[in-house]
Each structure stands twice: as structure tokens, then as C-alpha cells.
Design a protein around this nucleic acid. Sequence first.
RNA 1: AGGGGCGUAGCCAAGCGGUAAGGCACCUGCCUUUGGAGCAGGCAUUCGUAGGUUCGAAUCCUCCCGCCCCUGCCA
Length: 563
Amino acid sequence: MSVEETPKNSNFIRDIIDADLASGKHSEVVTRFPPEPNGYLHVGHAKSICLNFGLARDYKGRCHLRFDDTNPTKEEQEYIDAIKEDVKWLGFDWGKHEYYASDYFEQLFDWAVLLIKEGKAYVDDQTADEIRINRGTLTEPGKNSPCRNRSVEENLDLFMRMKKGEFKNGERVLRAKIDMAAPNMNMRDPVLYRILHAEHPRTGAKWCIYPMYDYTHGQSDAIEHISHSICTLEFQDHRPLYDWFIENLPVPAKPHQYEFARLNLTYTVMSKRKLLRLVQEKKVSGWNDPRMPTISGMRRRGYPAAALREFCDRIGVAKANSTVEFALLENCVRDDLNRNALRFMAVLRPIKLVITNYPADLVEVFDADNNPEDPNAGTRKVAFTRELYIESEDFMENPPKKYFRLSPGAEVRLKHAYYVTCRDIVKDAAGNVVEVHCEYDPTSRGGASPDGRRVKGTLHWVSASLGRKAEVRLYDHLFNQENPDKVEEGEDFMSRMSPNSLEVLTDSVVEPALADVAVGAPLQFLRMGYFCKDSDSTGDHLVFNRTVSLKDGWAKVQKNQPD
RNA sequence: AGGGGCGUAGCCAAGCGGUAAGGCACCUGCCUUUGGAGCAGGCAUUCGUAGGUUCGAAUCCUCCCGCCCCUGCCA
């Protein structure tokens, strides 16, 4: 790279790291991705994963995977397993650096005892309501707890008894003694420990008091010697508290927290709480429903991991709240799939096409390229017969201007095969066209004619007798407006769910070779979009998910035409 | 005057005192056995607003305006 060239992924965090490395403040970069295992990861987490692991990769440092498991009432082993699978699938490797905040419970407890001994923490007997009321408001200072000046001995005794399980949930908490009048609410004697008689996925019944996030995160960073602790904007106000613990405890390192704006995407919601509701209220089939913005949903939908990584690179990292258009994500997906998806022909909504001058018993086999973008992808054989299926939208009895597909008298090319001209149509009693009768030009074999005449329309097709039946699932946005949270008084995002987010086609017909493709492998159904075989497929029932449609130039032509 | 942040094109986003990168979207052409892909071109006289400093300001200073976050024993 030439010196005057700007690094393409420049962002403020890289600037900070460059400065820290140059000044000698740090000699290596150690980051961490710290999910709470209370739900599945979504594309917003992908941004954080790519940022943290990407920094570690580029600066030859390391990135830890650390589960923030301090609240056993919400966390589950299922989520831990799913998170690990998703990070791996995204293409990142934490090596041996898999940690849990719960690994540090003992140390955190000892440090809490130290704070008590130094008069910097106290046990509070107030109820949750009393604590809330006495915290004050944004414009008024809080009131000191009546327990604030307990003796060290009494605090120690009470805290030990909390640990031993002598009190019920909510009866007491341990609080830091900082400043009830601080303008930053986080500094008004924050709670360090609460009593939770709950089984923890990893520590079982060992503890009945659990540390709060604020008391846990920075110290965990320090224990792991994290150099740059990166989190989202809403934690900016917590940074003074993060620093307070680092300054007041004998921690082995002094990590620093930096904040960036979380990802928002149009036409979807991005909070685990809301996604959990969609799952619990059965609005979707599960966390990995292909319509979900979860990493597992996108994987099942057929989004390549590389496309997600590319997306995260392209959106950048900054501090301004922003909402990225879904179209950018789709562009990344198409860009990857165009290069890598194997092409096949599949007729989603079939209508029969009969070639009246083609022998009834003849089967011709043509070579079809598997990927015109990649000569190394080779070719496959496709069988051509007198009766075929074509896409019903590829025939119009009374076509509008610029429609260059099939219509009475019009000639089109059947991809890889022959030119055919529509000579007749057959309708049912209701007047619907059920068959299109054509004549083919034997000299156009392979898809080009000796006279070089121009045939603009090219249609995909599947042999009626040799094709396989298939179910095809078409997906659209889960929500019908860009920002699902922008609702009237008394409504919430659930009221903006789209009724058209899933369309199931049960009469599709596909090339027989599609029976053998692997679940999840990237496919393009010519002219229709990118697809992948779904895990619901069985030996005799094929199911395909539409990953994303192809860009539709015809739709644009129609849109820009008056009438 | 409660505190903390942020305002560069329709959407992201570089830029860090020397005269507005890049991507997506959109628009034009060309090309095409996918109306896909590809190729070429277009798209901010101006950086929330108003002043100031300077030979020179998106970059520095001041005022104002707008938006986001914070009163869990969630993270």
C-alpha cells in the first residue's frame, strides 16, 4: 500500500489503537466479545464480533470469547452453545480463550470484601422500591441510605450471611459507597451484589449472590488483560463507574472502555428482548427462522458468512446512531452468491409449454454452465422434452410494451436449448391460460440461430416429465415499515408485522439434479434468485428457501413506465 | 445550565487547517443465451445553524438548533 493511500477501514477505534501502540501504552491488542447467554446472536452482534475479532486479527493480537453470565435467571446453556456455533460459523476462532464471568466469581467476591474493609461498600437493607425512590431523579440528587454508615464489621457479617443464604431474594444488596448526589445516576451508590437463589448453568447451586454487570465487566477485562474493551454507546455513562472499580481495586491491569454505535437495520428489530417475544409468541418458527435477523436465521436463509463479514466491514464503525438500509445487506449477499452459487433451473409457479413440432418420445440433453462467473464450476446436463414447464409470469396473453418474454406470436429462447415461438394457447373453463403451444426452430439448437437473428427474451424451463416437485419458501421483511418501533400511542412493534413475510409455494418444479445438493449450499435458480435447500427437506420432499431475489430490472421498467 | 453522546448526499461513512474519499440506493448509456452479472458516466459549490479566528475552516473558538442515551436488585 502506498503511503498516501487511506486505509479503507479507518475508524476511530483503530486510530486509538494506533496511537496506543505508537506511544507504548500497549504492546499488544487484546479484545473480547462478551455476549450474555440469554438469547441467540443477531446481526448486530455480528458487527461487534467482526470488530473485536477483526481488530485482533489485523493487529496480530487476540480476541477472547467471554460469556457475561452473571444473571442465572435469564441465562441458559442452550444459548451458550448456540453463540459458540454462530461465532465459529461467522469464521472466527477464539482458540483457548473461552472464558466466563462466572470463572471470576471467587475473585470478585474477595474484592467486594476488600471494598467493604476499606469502607467503600456497604450492605443495604432497603427494599428495591426504597432504593429506587432514594436514588433521586435526573435533576434531583438522591438520599443516603440509612445503612450507609454501618460499621465495617457489621457489613462484613451481613455480606457473609448473604453469601451463606440466610436471606431471601431482594432482602439485602451490597452497594458501593460513592456519591448519592452524583449527576451520573450510575455513580449513586450502585448495587454490586444481589441475592438470587437460582441455579447457574455453570456454578450450579454454589452461589446465591451474584455480581452485577457493572461490578463484573471491567474487572473481568482487567483479569484477562484486555487492552481495548469495546462496547455500545449506551454504556458511555457507565465508564466512570468502570474506571472507579479499576482505580479502587488491586486489579492486574488497567483496561479502558470505548463505545461505538450499535447496528440498526431497516425493516427489522434488533433487541434480544423483542426477538425473544417473536419466538415465544410463535410469530416465527424459532430463533433460526429464516426471516429472523439472527445469525442462525441468516445462516438457514442461505446468507454466506463471508457476506455478513463484508457487510460489517462496509457499514463502518462510528459513534453516530444510524440505521443501515436492508438493501446494503442484500447487496453483500448477492455479491457473494453471484460469484459462488451454482446455477440451476427451477420453475416456481409453473405453466405448461408444449412444443407441437417436437417429437413426443425424444429427450435431448444439453450442457449448461454451472456458473458463468466461474469457468471452473464446470457444466451439467439438462434434459429437454416436448412438454416443459415455464414460469407463469413469463407468458402474457396481452403483454405491455417492452415485455420481451412469451406472448402470442412472440419468439423467445429457452435457456441452453432452442428458440420457440408461441402459436396457440389453451384455456380452462374459467378462462385461465393453462397451456402455451409453441413451435421450435431446430436450427437454433443450443440457443443461437445460424441467421443471427436477435431474440431478446430468455426463459428458464424444466422438463415436465423429468422435473422434480418441490416446496419453495419465499421470504420478505418481517415488518412492513422501515422502523417497526415507530408506532401510534398504545401500539408496539408487534402491530407492524407483515402478513406477507412468508409465502409457501408447493407446486414448484425443479431440475432433478437439485435433489442431490447439500442443505445450505448456495444456489441460484436462474432468473428467480438465490436459494438453498432447507433442513426440512427429506428424500422425497424437497424444500428450498429463497435467500434473496435477483435484482429485477423488469420491475424497474414497469415502475418507470406511465400507465 | 442534571449528566453523557452525536449531527458530512436518500442510507452508511472517510476526512483531523490547504479547498468534500468510498460503498449502497438512484439515474444515463453500453454489453449480455439470467431484464442477473459486467463496463462507462452522472449524483453534496458544501459539511445542522449563526457568528468569530485565519491568506485559507467540514476541520479551531463561541452561540444557538436538532436527535439519542441515563432514575433495573437487566446486560
